[in-house]
Amino acid sequence: MQDVSYYRPSSIKEAIKILSEHGPTAKVLAGGTDVIVQARERTKKITAFVDIKKIPDVMGLGIEGHRGLTIGAATPMYQIYNHSGVQEEYPAIIDSANIIGGKAIQGRASLGGNLCNGSPAADTIPTLIVLEGTANIIGPNGERKIAIEDFCTGPGKTLLQHDEILISLHFKRPAPFSGSRFIRFIPRNEMDIAVVNVASQIQMDGNKIESSRVAIGACAPTPLLLKEISNFIQGKELSQDLLENAAELFNNLITPIEDMRGSPEHRVDLAKTLFKRTMNDAVIRSNGEKVQ
């Protein structure tokens, strides 16, 4: 383990002061399932951990009527997928939170941590993007909000400055007749990194697609919002032919890498399949029905 100092501030102000004084090698510690491993394996230089879990603003979650859902950035996954309101209204978040690592990881890992770690294959980010999530950030110069689709800038890189803290994530109330779904492909059934993952959100008007959002992970340096797909299907009657034709757009939209998890061709094929499956499931959910 690198020679790290440990701080446990009880307010945002105090935490930002410590981060500012230490410089970029001080890291926010939430669940620690990424940063503690990075400190031990020396993949990043880390000299201080600023544990934010005693700051009330970053812990817990709640739905406030029409104002939507706010999730504290450090809230562990198990609290998120056990929340009945999230199960009811934001099932794609459950799809993602339920498959991050094993149960012992879910006891600690957080949405904020998954987002700030900035992995191209992160399992929550496509979902956060299609649900039009907003990141609430506080730094020395005050508060700012960033749309989650803009948050990641490259592998392990985000717009968050070293002395800023991601406080919470906010999601608006889902529109009537809308549904969302996240699916990832991995060679085993659990505990692995996605070869490809896709989240889809859809709002229906009868059999017509009112609007949609599709995001994909593990196919580019960051998770991507694919507006081209939404533009193609928007306003049209839902059919399997339409989804097949839309899926063909993936040929030119993504240029995935070749690695031990899969070839570019394999990833494009998976992207098409996962797109169709997530869309069909999102439509089922838009009718208030359960999938699987």
Binding site: G31, T33, I36, V37, G107
Partner: peptide, 23 residues
């Protein structure tokens, strides 16, 4: 020692965690 194998599992405040990923 990186959160994958669960051999270091303990309960922290009653919740299952990997102790290698806790300071």
């Amino acid at each position: 020692n990186n959160g994958n194998c669960g051999a270091c599992a303990v309960l922290l405040d009653g919740i299952l965690v990997n102790s290698c990923c806790v300071m």
